[in-house]
């Protein structure tokens, strides 16, 4: 009995913070747009239970149909997935060597290096992305430095390049930390054993270090990919008008068009788009634990 009670809090937590909001959003997604407050119909009249049946009967999937009909939405989804994928690969290519260097650094250096990786979290995400506008804008810090060296200015701000820079910058720690953790656990004598058995240093890296840090690579990739798919701040601050990401579309639908019903449909679909990689991640984590 007591054990059951102990299990409740997580479920109650899930119910209040996930399932209830989801149910609300899903209900709005099934409603019709209306010029009213709130801007959709029908609304539940909680005081009159006899009307509930009629209200439920008025719900339909029109908005989801709309998402399929207008190419804007699925291109935005695809574009988000592509941008997230590229950003994840870039973060991996940059993050792995950094994590490797940290794991190989002398023990007394490590706390400092770890600090440097975590330090950005001590300031606001929004402010850090604004700072990148200052660096990347046409009259920004980067072009100023390039000017001193005599290189013609680059126009990076409001392009996908700026979005990638911002995304990789913002999510790099999520790549570095799990990879570092898995590299740090590798017994150094394994590499000596590999060398002893005829591997060069490089070969030992690919045959021993990389496979043994696979768990960290997986975790890092999912920790970057999943939030980046729905990312809103970076594309809207650093991206241009042709940067298409679903988070941006959602906000525009909701606040600019005040179309709560379509915005809710977008959110529901986004959730399902993300549930697939999350489930994959869980599965691979379980498989690793099992072996």
């Amino acid at each position: 009995m007591i054990r059951r009670v102990i299990l409740w809090p997580p479920y109650i937590w899930l119910l209040i913070l996930f399932l209830l909001p989801f149910a609300l959003v899903f209900k709005i997604a099934l409603s019709d747009y209306a010029i009213a407050i709130p801007p959709y119909t029908p609304t539940f009249d909680w005081a009159d239970p006899s009307s509930w049946g009629a209200t439920l009967g008025a719900l339909d999937f029109e908005n989801f149909q709309w998402l399929l009909d207008d190419p804007l939405y699925y291109t935005a989804y695809l574009s988000s997935l592509r941008i997230a994928l590229v950003a994840t690969v870039l973060a991996l290519l940059i993050g792995y060597p950094m994590a490797y260097a940290m794991a190989r650094a002398p023990a007394h250096w490590r706390p400092l290096l770890m600090m440097l990786v975590i330090l950005p979290f001590w300031s606001s995400f929004l402010i850090r992305i604004y700072a990148w506008i200052g660096i990347l804008s046409n009259e920004g810090f980067l072009n100023m430095v390039l000017g001193w060296v005599g290189i013609p200015p680059l126009s990076i701000i409001n392009t996908n390049t700026a979005v990638y820079i911002g995304l990789v910058y913002a999510y790099l720690p999520f790549m570095i930390l799990p990879i570092f953790a898995s590299l740090d656990r590798i017994d150094p004598s394994l590499l000596e054993a590999a060398e002893d058995l005829g591997c060069s240093r490089t070969e030992a890296f690919w045959r021993i270090t990389v496979p043994l840090s696979k768990a960290g690579i997986f975790a890092g990739c999912f920790l970057v990919f999943i939030p980046v798919v729905g990312e809103y701040i970076v594309p809207s601050l650093l991206g241009g008008s042709n940067t298409l990401m679903i988070g941006k579309v959602l906000v525009e639908e909701f606040f600019n068009n005040r179309d709560w019903t379509v915005a809710s449909a977008v959110a529901v679909v986004l959730l399902f788009v993300l549930v697939i990689p999350i489930v994959l991640f869980q599965r691979s984590a379980e498989r690793r634990d099992a072996t």
Binding site: S189, A193, L212
Partner: peptide, 20 residues
């Protein structure tokens, strides 16, 4: 002569078996 080119093999104190 680097370790991978020596006609010597070592059995490590920790065994150092490749876990994967």
């Amino acid at each position: 002569v680097p370790p991978n080119k020596r006609p010597v093999n070592m059995m490590f104190q920790s065994y150092a078996l490749f876990p994967h």
